[in-house]
Simulated assay, not measured.
Amino acid sequence: MTPRFYGVVGRFETPDALLEAIRCLRRRDRHLRLEAYAPYAVEGLSEALDLPRGKVPLFTLIGGVLGGASGFFMQWYAAVVSFPVNIGGRPLNSWPMFIPVTFEMTILGAALAAVLGMLAVSGLPRLHHPIFDAPCFGLATRDRYFLCLRPPPGMPGPAPAKQYREVLESLGATASDEVWT
């Protein structure tokens, strides 16, 4: 299997330098594929990267609605169809009695859908990522900030690698390296 070019990763010393580099790159080209890595949450990073809205809230809503509907249907079926018991002349479909279980099933369905949706959207579990092979990338969990420039989809070969390295170093990256898959 021949290695494929993944991108160029640059190392920055401070979060402000990382954010400024991202803003400069976004001003130059809105459609650049950028990935940023930091040891902790950096305020303004997701806005600077211009990340799309996540799909996890939609999964959570759908899971909650399905969980609540299935909880209500399960109780309704048991009380009205499967085993109807007339107690004191009360109606078989006494919906106020079904509210607590319906609520709990809504919460359960939403929580499960949120976790499974998060795993599906983020591509987890992923045991290896090409960026892990970049020199000094272990510092991303301690005290350094990394920015990866990726070529547009469909571009063959490492054509923009030298250009990306020059751009990153001109924006203040202390080091830049090519990443291959």
Rank of each mutant, 00 (worst) to 15 (best):
V56Q: 08
R126C: 08
A113Y: 06
V121L: 14
P160W: 06
A78R: 13
P156G: 11
V81T: 10
S94W: 01
S94P: 00
G154P: 06
G89P: 01
P158F: 00
V101K: 00
L66M: 13
S82H: 14
Q75S: 10
I99A: 15
I62P: 01
H128C: 08
W76I: 01
V115N: 04
M155E: 14
N86E: 08
Q75D: 05
L58V: 14
F137C: 05
G67N: 04
P57G: 08
V80G: 04
V56I: 15
R53G: 13
S94G: 00
V115S: 11
S122G: 12
P158C: 04
T60K: 04
L51H: 03
C148S: 10
R53W: 10
E104K: 08
S122N: 15
G138V: 12
L127C: 07
I87K: 06
T106E: 01
F98K: 07
R165D: 13
A114K: 12
T106A: 09
F98T: 06
P151Q: 12
G88H: 10
P100T: 05
A48E: 08
L149V: 12
A114E: 04
E104G: 04
L108G: 02
P160R: 05
L149A: 04
S70L: 15
S82I: 02
R144G: 00
L112I: 15
A48G: 07
G89I: 07
G63V: 09
H129M: 14
G63S: 11
P125G: 10
G54N: 13
D133V: 00
D143Q: 04
H129Y: 14
A120N: 13
F73G: 13
V167S: 05
W76M: 02
I62W: 02
V167E: 15
W95N: 08
P160N: 09
L139E: 15
P91A: 03
L66F: 14
A111I: 10
F103K: 01
E104T: 05
P160A: 09
G157M: 04
G88W: 10
L139T: 00
A110M: 06
P100D: 00
V121Q: 13
T141N: 06
A110V: 04
P135C: 05
Q75E: 09
G123W: 11
R165N: 09
M105L: 15
V65T: 13
W76T: 03
F137S: 07
L149H: 02
G123Q: 12
V121D: 07
F98C: 05
G138E: 15
G157C: 01
P125Q: 09
L168C: 09
Y145W: 13
T141F: 09
G67I: 11
P100K: 02
F72I: 03
R144N: 01
T141D: 04
L112Q: 03
I99R: 05
L168K: 01
A113G: 09
R126F: 11
A134M: 02
L108E: 03
P84G: 02
P153A: 09
F137M: 12
L119W: 11
L49T: 07
F73D: 00
L51V: 14
A113L: 12
V80S: 05
G71P: 00
